[in-house]
Simulated assay, not measured.
Amino acid sequence: MAETHDIVALTSGGPHSWIMINALRERFGDFPVILEQPECQKSFWKRRLKMLGPIKVASMQAARLPMKFTKLGSENVITDMIGAYRLFPKPIQGTRIIDVPSVNTKACRDVLADVAPKAVFVVSTRMIGRKTLNAVDAPFINYHSGINPAYRGMFGGYFALANGEPEHFGATVHLIDEGVDTGGILYQSKVDAHPSDTFHTYLWRIAAGSRDIVVQAMEDAVDGRLAPHTVNLPSRQWFAPTLGGYVWTGLSRGVW
């Protein structure tokens, strides 16, 4: 790879990932996007089984059934957001995509070393190991759809609403360390959920209202003026909703 770039992105893809990457392209121009293959579902749930136990994992799996019913109408909500907020949820033509098996492979580390970016933007990847984090002398900066440290892990926006904390419906941009969303916080967004939103649209709503903090954090990184800080909230890692939790929250709070 002949040229170098100020930034490079690591992702496994997905609409909210491309929304953020395309917002960065508007600011920084073209840059390489390292695209890892998603982790297979069998390995994912095997790890969850070991971590959480069979009863909770079975309940998480069962929650998928009522979620199918709440998906009805979500495509219209998403279409409206794409138009209203000028979202670009797919790779733009000309995007330089470099496929790798995983962010934790030598192939990925070789690309990073070759590009030698000033900062690495990370969105929707598996946990990044020490070898990759040390592959280049640059900060790894993650976009997380949740308010850290209270809503680390998965589906932070949903759980904030499910817990009756709409003030914590938003996103965090933070430095990556070896923990789960535990790195120093750079910026956070607070976004308003709409009555039409459901589990299937929360990520879109948060992404639509959080592009500016991603751009600002990457500008700070490139200019060498990152200022990580801590937020005084209880720390908890969240996973997928359970069947009982999802149904009860929907009936009691109207959060589906």
Rank of each mutant, 00 (worst) to 15 (best):
R25C: 08
R25P: 02
R25K: 06
E26R: 09
E26D: 14
R27H: 09
R27S: 13
R27Q: 10
F28N: 02
F28R: 12
F28A: 02
F28G: 07
G29M: 04
D30A: 14
D30G: 02
D30W: 11
F31P: 01
F31H: 06
F31V: 04
F31C: 10
P32D: 06
V33N: 00
V33W: 01
I34P: 02
L35F: 15
L35Q: 10
E36M: 04
E36P: 01
E36V: 05
Q37W: 10
Q37H: 08
P38Y: 00
P38E: 08
E39Y: 03
E39F: 07
E39T: 05
E39L: 07
C40M: 15
K42Q: 12
W45Q: 03
W45N: 08
W45L: 02
K46S: 13
K46Y: 11
K46T: 06
R47G: 13
R47W: 09
R47M: 07
R48Q: 11
R48V: 06
R48Y: 13
L49H: 01
L49E: 01
K50F: 10
K50T: 15
K50G: 14
M51L: 10
L52I: 03
G53R: 03
G53V: 00
P54C: 04
P54A: 04
P54G: 02
I55A: 10
I55Y: 12
I55P: 05
I55E: 08
K56R: 08
K56Q: 14
V57A: 05
S59Y: 00
S59F: 02
M60P: 00
M60Y: 04
Q61V: 12
A62H: 02
A63R: 00
A63N: 05
R64S: 01
L65E: 04
L65K: 05
P66H: 09
K68P: 08
K68T: 14
T70N: 14
T70H: 07
K71E: 12
L72N: 12
L72K: 13
L72Q: 14
L72I: 08
L72G: 12
G73Q: 07
S74V: 05
E75R: 12
E75T: 06
E75L: 11
E75S: 12
N76M: 11
V77M: 10
I78L: 09
I78N: 05
T79C: 10
T79N: 12
D80V: 09
D80P: 07
M81Y: 11
M81K: 11
G83K: 15
A84P: 02
A84W: 01
A84G: 06
A84C: 08
Y85R: 08
Y85N: 14
Y85K: 04
R86M: 09
R86Q: 12
R86S: 07
L87Q: 01
L87K: 01
L87V: 04
F88D: 08
F88Y: 09
F88L: 04
P89A: 06
K90M: 09
K90L: 13
K90D: 08
P91G: 11
I92D: 13
Q93I: 14
Q93V: 14
Q93A: 15
Q93T: 14
G94L: 07
T95H: 06
T95I: 12
R96W: 00
R96L: 00
I97A: 07
I97E: 05
I98Q: 00
I98H: 10
I98G: 03
